Computed example of a mutant assay.
Amino acid sequence: MTRLAAGITLIALCVLAFLVYSNQGLRQERETLRSDNKRLAGQIEWQNKMQIAVASIEENRSRELTNAKNKTDDLQRDVDDGRRRLRLHASCSSAGPSGMADAAAARLTDAAQRDYFTLRTRIETANIQIAGLQDYIRDICLAQP
């Protein structure tokens, strides 16, 4: 019977050693998973902050773009209605004597006036887009995770 007890004890010790060894592996695996989970949670938090920053940049620049377009549209309406005039630096050469009393003031042609407003809108759009890209590079691309 003592041989049987010794055998059972030996088997129990082997099972216990196996359980301790496998338990140690599970602990290491658990610590690895916790570390990975913490790292991934940090990345998700960083990505969420970056999405909020991108949305903020887009909102601000879209508002600026809308305001610039409205300002140009208002100016064009005022010019069309005669409340404002476009100033230009021009010199008129006339075949007649200088200082004619009935000479008309220099003005842009209708096509040139339309082109002026188109160019003004495009320049404002380009400036705002460039500023938005600069914000994106500075606040998003160069931000450290």
Rank of each mutant, 00 (worst) to 15 (best):
Y136W: 14
L13H: 00
A101K: 14
G96E: 14
E31T: 06
I11A: 12
R122C: 03
A126W: 09
R85A: 06
L86P: 02
T109D: 11
E29F: 08
R30G: 01
N70L: 13
N127S: 13
A68K: 03
Q24L: 10
Q28P: 00
A101T: 11
Q43F: 13
D115L: 14
S91M: 14
R138G: 03
K69A: 08
A95D: 12
E124N: 15
L88C: 07
Q134P: 01
L33R: 06
A111V: 14
A131T: 01
S22W: 06
G7P: 00
G132Q: 04
G132F: 01
A104W: 03
A6N: 05
D80K: 15
R3L: 05
Y116S: 07
Q28F: 09
L88A: 09
D110L: 14
I123H: 07
I57F: 02
G82L: 08
G42C: 02
Q144L: 13
A17Q: 00
I140L: 10
L65N: 02
S94T: 15
Y21W: 15
Y21L: 11
I140T: 01
F117G: 02
R3V: 04
Q28D: 11
D139I: 05
D81W: 07
Y116K: 11
N127G: 04
N127C: 09
A95W: 08
L86Y: 05
R84G: 01
G42A: 10
A131S: 10
A112P: 05
S93I: 11
G82R: 05
W46Q: 10
R84M: 10
R30P: 00
Q76N: 07
A106I: 10
I57A: 03
D110E: 15
S91K: 12
R27S: 12
A95N: 12
A111D: 12
R107M: 11
I11H: 00
Q113N: 11
Y21Q: 05
L40K: 09
S56L: 04
L19F: 07
K71V: 02
K38W: 06
Q47P: 00
L26V: 06
Q144S: 13
L75T: 01
Y136P: 00
G7V: 00
T125C: 04
N48T: 13
R30M: 10
H89A: 13
Y116W: 15
E59W: 02
R39S: 08
A12K: 04
G99E: 02
A106K: 09
T2R: 07
A126L: 15
T72C: 05
C92N: 10
Q28W: 03
A41T: 08
A12I: 02
R87C: 01
A12H: 00
D78T: 04
N23M: 10
L26W: 04
D78F: 07
I52G: 01
S35Y: 06
N67P: 02
M100H: 06
C14I: 10
